[in-house]
Simulated scan of single mutants.
Amino acid sequence: MNVKSPLCGALIGLCLWSGVVQASDALFRNIEQADSSAVTALLEQDAALLEVRDSRGNTPLLAAAQMNSVPLVRLLLASGAAPSAMNYKHRDILNTAVSVSNPEIARLALQAGADPTQVTSVYEGSALIYATHQAELEIMQLLIAAGAPLDRVNNLGWTALLEAVILGNGGEDYVSAVRLLLAAGADRNIADKKGKTPLDHARDKGYQTLITVLQTPVKE
């Protein structure tokens, strides 16, 4: 009678786990090297590798986006990678597209089903708030068109409009960001935790163009 001992079973499990770890490490290494052929070969061997995580909680898709690799992002999404996965800092691929200033990554992610309403980052904000903070205008347009919440308030008490004024420099890009939000229907009267509106902050900073924009009704 052939009876496997518990030790034998444990050794088999350990070997299988070791194999998964090695494949996972190889996948992230090949993503870092932008080796699409090697990534494809590994995924063909084991599709479950799509959702493994690195030490920062990044999936292969998030790692590819952080490398600013459109071909790899396209490949991983086409292979079935989860488009709304977040890492340990609660950043998703839409946040990452903002970080690397790449609207094409945001476009591909949204087309694949990335959720623009998702609460992200340690500030419990959104990709739109982050895109506004960075004045990434094309990504803002994509997110707004996809239904991103215009008036999400993060745990600092700031909406996207407030971030544009508080964290922006009052320059042309931030004026354009404010115009985009207002044209989409963002509420200019939402105040921060101290009761200050975007207009109040613009006045405090002396941002004359923003003061004018925030005082001007949006044309229908």
Score class of each variant (00 low, 15 high):
157 G>E: 12
163 E>F: 04
160 A>D: 08
153 V>C: 02
144 I>Q: 11
164 A>G: 13
168 G>I: 01
145 A>I: 14
149 P>W: 05
146 A>W: 08
164 A>D: 06
162 L>A: 14
157 G>V: 13
165 V>R: 02
144 I>C: 13
164 A>I: 06
145 A>C: 14
160 A>Q: 07
139 I>Q: 03
145 A>D: 15
140 M>N: 06
136 E>S: 15
165 V>P: 04
148 A>E: 09
157 G>A: 14
146 A>Y: 07
154 N>W: 00
168 G>P: 01
139 I>R: 01
165 V>T: 06
159 T>R: 04
139 I>V: 12
142 L>G: 06
141 Q>M: 00
165 V>A: 05
156 L>E: 15
140 M>A: 04
159 T>F: 02
153 V>H: 05
144 I>P: 12
169 N>G: 11
166 I>F: 14
147 G>C: 06
165 V>Y: 01
136 E>A: 12
141 Q>C: 01
136 E>H: 10
153 V>L: 07
147 G>A: 06
162 L>E: 14
137 L>Q: 10
156 L>V: 05
169 N>D: 15
143 L>T: 02
152 R>Y: 01
150 L>K: 11
168 G>L: 04
157 G>Q: 13
165 V>Q: 05
144 I>R: 10
143 L>K: 03
157 G>K: 13
140 M>E: 15
157 G>D: 13
154 N>M: 01
153 V>S: 02
159 T>P: 01
167 L>Q: 12
146 A>I: 08
140 M>R: 04
151 D>I: 11
160 A>M: 08
142 L>Q: 15
137 L>F: 02
139 I>K: 00
139 I>S: 02
150 L>G: 11
157 G>H: 13
159 T>C: 02
136 E>K: 09
169 N>R: 05
144 I>T: 09
157 G>M: 13
166 I>G: 10
152 R>D: 03
144 I>S: 11
143 L>W: 04
154 N>T: 03
168 G>A: 02
145 A>W: 15
166 I>D: 11
150 L>N: 10
137 L>S: 09
158 W>L: 14
147 G>Y: 05
169 N>E: 09
168 G>C: 03
148 A>F: 11
142 L>M: 05
167 L>P: 00
148 A>Y: 10
151 D>C: 08
141 Q>H: 06
167 L>R: 14
165 V>D: 08
151 D>V: 10
169 N>F: 00
146 A>G: 11
139 I>D: 03
165 V>H: 03
165 V>S: 06
163 E>P: 00
169 N>I: 00
142 L>N: 07
151 D>G: 08
167 L>W: 07
140 M>Y: 06
170 G>K: 00
139 I>Y: 02
142 L>R: 04
155 N>E: 05
143 L>A: 00
